[in-house]
Design a protein around this nucleic acid. Sequence first.
RNA 1: GCCGCGUUGGUCAAGGGGUUAAGACGCCUCCCUUUCACGGAGGAAUCACGGGUUCGAAUCCCGUACGUGGUACCA
Length: 509
Amino acid sequence: MFNKVRVRFAPSPTGGLHLGGVRTVLYNYLFAKKNGGDFIVRIEDTDQTRFVAGAEEYIFNCLQWCGLQPDESVIHGGEYAPYRQSERKAMYRQYAEKLVEEGHAYYAFDTPEELDAMREKLKAEGSNSLQYDHSVRMKMNNSLRLLPAETQALLDSQTPYVIRIKVNPHEIISFTDMIRGDIDFDTNNVDDKVLLKADGMPTYHLAVVVDDYLMKISHAFRGEEWLPSAPVHILLWKHLFGLNHMPQWAHLPLILKPDGNGKLSKRDGDRLGFPVYAMDWTDPKTNELTKGFKEIGFLPEAFNNLLAVLGWNDGTEQELFSLEELVEKFSMERVHKGGAKFDFDKAKWYNHEWIKKLDVSHYQQRVKDIFAGKDIIITDDTRFAAVLNLVKDRCTLLTDFYTQASFFFKAPDAIDVPAIKPKWDDKKQLFFAELSRALELMPLWEQGQLENEFKEIAAANQLKPGELMLPFRVMLVGGKFGPGVFDIAASIGRQNTLQRISHAMALLA
RNA sequence: GCCGCGUUGGUCAAGGGGUUAAGACGCCUCCCUUUCACGGAGGAAUCACGGGUUCGAAUCCCGUACGUGGUACCA
């Protein structure tokens, strides 16, 4: 039975790939890989999204960065092409017409104004429901109420129409969700949803069902917001293809905003200062750039990890999981039913852990690019790797490597003079002058030697090394941070060390 | 309003009749470190409420509250 797992989603109206979207894809991927199935990603081009240039490519770039490559090409070619909804229009219509013929759907000619009027009237009557359903459809302008000849006349005269599903009342529809178990719906509460729009495009309801059937999908994951429309989809499966072909559904919990309540949106990220998209996205219409996790310095390993455990855990105390481990340990039964608030601090913690855990070779090139973007061109990769190893423990984001290590490659832009000035005196001035002379003559430029020399001169001047280390550090790195001072001096070399000392002394004098 | 789904510290969460109710993030204290981190030790903080069932309920049942999603020719 097991065949294909798919995720299907439309990019947001402005483009961009949201955290929730990536997590849905991730769970699909894990489930498919664990069970030996194919993993498919399908993207819709709907009214809202089909004109967003580059959105499809962008999404696949994001998935590639995350290491979640689909098994089937979902943009071009392949057994089930075409994939774009607009290129499949004719198929959808065919199935919609079939439903009409068999009495499970009907033509509706109501104008938007008429629909508004109907809802106003229901509201005025104090009705609980404002839906277009079994209780109102015989009062509306559709092929159920009209005589066949009247319907035909409207059709012939090119009157715009939609096709709506005909939902019979007083039925219980039930299905088993992989996460939530058995769920029942009373069809009295299900309305006659539009299946085919006036412009000939299908709604999501028709498209998912038809596509899932045609593409032989066995498992379908989607966000919890789709749960209320599940009965419509089940009815369509029943009428069109038979319930025994219907995929198994999993409705994933929502990712919520950190403060207050509600679904996490791009606006929350802007407001609270963190990304919500996987990668940078520029809206082609407005040219507005939205930052992505990749660009602010996240590792894909951390990104997958933090997303996977937002709504799932393996029941042990383990927090850090590689993709391979996730594939091995993931199970749908352990996915939560309730939504989880997104916590950016914890997200950063995962990245920090992965930076520490991974060998620097995994991200050396990316850090190199970050440096290049700030006009530091790295030529010695071996030394670069050594420096990265020296500072990786104190970097939470990849971009932190710049602040933590740029001084290894160029003199600091600014010296934190106020940090040393208050305790600066002639004795220290003298010490550093003497130190400079000694360092100039030191035969071997090496960390241990440096430290010895430093301490001997300090002792000779009756100064405690402790009072001198901080000034020395600030001279070399510009501030009160960074790895061991003598490591730094050893790494940047004699020339640079001497220059930085004299530069700072001039500022302090 | 109606319908669906949910509810264990501030957040992510384990636990599914008997536990001192794990662990992680964040916060605080201390140790380590002649900087900042890392690391280590500790601390504050939780079962939404009310009724049942039971010898015993965070756990099972029923209500209530709260949250959230849907209620579109959006997905």
